[in-house]
Amino acid sequence: MLIDALALEKLRAVQSKLPAGLGLILTRGYEAKSSNLGLARRQLRAAGIMLFKLFYPQRRNELLEIFGSNGHDVDGNHVDVSISLNGRRVELLPLSVFTPEAWQQRRVRKSAGAVELVQAALKDAGFRIHRNPTESLQIHCDLIPSETK
């Protein structure tokens, strides 16, 4: 996984400001379209779109936001992070993007303090959290270099 040096520096700075027991887990960075991983993601994305349409026909307007590359194929400023709390990963989307919205809401309520702290720290460091609710729970964020401090 590749990540821009400034983005990594900012993530480290965010981590250093979080309370003890609360951590970041980098789960996705830059993925070249031409790589084997990029090819596999495109194939899985096509299958995922078909299944998502089947399970969530009312959410078709979210397909591009959820299944698009969201900049991961552009550069290392587009990252996904997870949260660990006291050494355990906080599973906000146990079924990935197929996690029902009611489950998402319940899990967010359970870990609201940790999620809010992490997202606020990321924003303060110059990251923009994805506007789609599901993507924001994958904590997809983009470093906006012009907004960094």
Rank of each mutant, 00 (worst) to 15 (best):
E116F: 14
L117A: 14
A46H: 12
A32P: 08
L92E: 03
E62D: 11
L93E: 07
L26A: 08
P57Y: 07
L92H: 05
L143A: 04
G68M: 04
F52G: 10
A46D: 15
N77T: 08
E147S: 13
G71M: 00
L18V: 09
L37P: 00
Y30P: 06
E65F: 09
S34E: 11
G71T: 05
G23H: 04
L93R: 07
D80Y: 01
F67D: 00
H78W: 09
E31F: 15
D142E: 13
R131D: 07
E116R: 13
N36C: 10
N86S: 09
A46N: 12
D75G: 02
Q119T: 07
A40H: 13
T148F: 04
K123C: 14
R107F: 11
T148K: 11
N77K: 11
S111F: 14
L51P: 09
L18G: 02
G23P: 01
N36M: 13
I25N: 10
R107L: 15
W103K: 11
L95E: 15
H140T: 11
L26C: 08
K53L: 00
L54Q: 15
L137S: 06
A47K: 15
D142P: 00
V115T: 00
S136D: 05
L22A: 02
D73E: 14
L37C: 07
V118T: 02
R41W: 13
D73L: 13
L54Y: 15
I129S: 04
R59A: 05
T99D: 05
V108P: 07
L95R: 14
S82L: 11
A47C: 05
L39P: 04
W103T: 14
P145W: 09
V81A: 03
T148D: 02
K53M: 08
G29A: 12
A32T: 08
G68W: 02
D142W: 10
R109K: 08
L37K: 15
I25H: 07
S69E: 15
E116M: 11
E91Y: 12
G76M: 05
I25Y: 01
M50A: 15
F98C: 04
V97W: 00
I25V: 15
A20C: 12
S35N: 00
G113E: 10
T148R: 12
L122V: 12
E62C: 07
N36V: 15
L122Y: 03
A114M: 04
F52D: 12
A102P: 00
A120P: 13
R106W: 01
G126V: 05
F127E: 01
L93T: 05
S111K: 06
L85R: 05
